[in-house]
């Protein structure tokens, strides 16, 4: 909890009265920028400060300097990054700072500190930055150059469908270094129309992990909805299917199928009716929702 919050709480009764005394951004940044202050104190100041989000403001420049200076302690730089990222939500006011912020982040993206690297690459990737994408792809192709773990790189590349990551994701999905990496590679591919057969196979494979099958359901529903609806119906009828997958399939049918077609699908209505009476709790719940929606 910030100091601001605590002090305000104590003066709750006097809400309409004067605002509680707070340290100004300037004094907070003076503490944050001073090497004489302790790390904890500097981090606390940066956590408390509200930057004016304009390059007219010397405090913003100070925060940028801290972030870009690799002699500063990593915790302090992380706190500066958070304060700047918060300010970046004020898009109009922040526009003049944006260029310098992005350039600083590119520098930080290759910093020795892993947390800083990941955070910087995160901001850049969400802004579809070509530099970050290039670095992330390089790392996937050559693990020696990796700045973040494989799964993180894939997850950051998925922010931009145009990031040119499908090929490398396909490769990783077929020979994954870890379960996490495989899952992220599949998640990235779930926007790739040509991966429909892969997801169909995974969805139907009962030996697959639950997460992977769930993800495959969402992916197939996204890139080949008709095919998925057909498969989902089959899964609902399969007595040996896992309850999780059955519930997911039934939910997709409930929410996204053509209601008219459903109302005339006698066998399905019968099947769901029986599931709503007797099935594991999660399936039963979805089946009941289905029945309230479509029962005549």
């Amino acid at each position: 909890m910030s100091k601001k919050g605590k002090s305000a709480k104590s003066s709750k009764s006097a809400r309409k009265a004067k605002a509680p005394a707070r340290r100004t951004a300037r004094s907070l940044m003076a503490v944050a920028a001073s090497a004489k202050s302790g790390v904890k104190e500097r981090v606390a100041s940066l956590n408390e400060v509200t930057l004016a989000a304009s390059d007219q403001d010397a405090n913003v420049t100070r925060a940028l300097d801290i972030l870009g200076n690799d002699n500063e302690p990593a915790e302090v730089r992380m706190a500066a990054l958070e304060a700047l990222q918060t300010a970046s939500f004020s898009v109009v006011a922040f526009a003049p700072v944006r260029g310098e912020y992005l350039a600083t982040l590119r520098k930080v993206a290759t910093d020795p500190n892993a947390e800083l690297r990941e955070s910087a690459l995160g901001v850049l990737a969400r802004n579809k930055d070509g530099f970050a994408q290039q670095k992330l792809l390089e790392g996937l192709q050559d693990p020696g150059k990796a700045l973040v773990p494989t799964e993180t790189a894939l997850s950051l590349l998925s922010f931009d469908p145009h990031a040119d990551a499908y090929n490398v994701a396909r490769r990783i999905a077929s020979a994954p270094p870890s379960d996490d990496a495989r899952q992220e590679a599949l998640r990235l591919l779930s926007a790739d129309a040509t991966s429909a057969p892969l997801f169909e196979k995974l969805l139907l494979d009962k030996s697959e992990k639950r997460e992977v099958r769930q993800l495959s359901a969402a992916a197939l529903h996204s890139i080949a909805p008709k095919k998925f609806q057909k498969r989902a119906r089959e899964l609902v009828f399969d007595p040996s299917e896992y309850p999780d997958i059955q519930a997911t399939s039934l939910a997709a049918i409930t929410n996204f199928s053509d209601p008219e077609a459903l109302a005339n699908d006698e066998p399905l209505l019968k099947r769901v009716d029986s599931l709503s009476e007797k099935s594991p709790a999660k399936v039963k719940q979805v089946a009941r929702r289905f029945m309230t929606k479509f029962k005549r």
Partner: peptide, 23 residues
């Protein structure tokens, strides 16, 4: 741990998708 949001089976947002990417 990967930051992927998990829902109960059958949750309506299981199929949430934005910018072409599910999840």
């Amino acid at each position: 741990n990967l930051g992927t949001v998990q829902f109960n089976p059958g949750h309506p947002l299981t199929f949430w998708k934005t910018d072409t990417v599910p999840g």
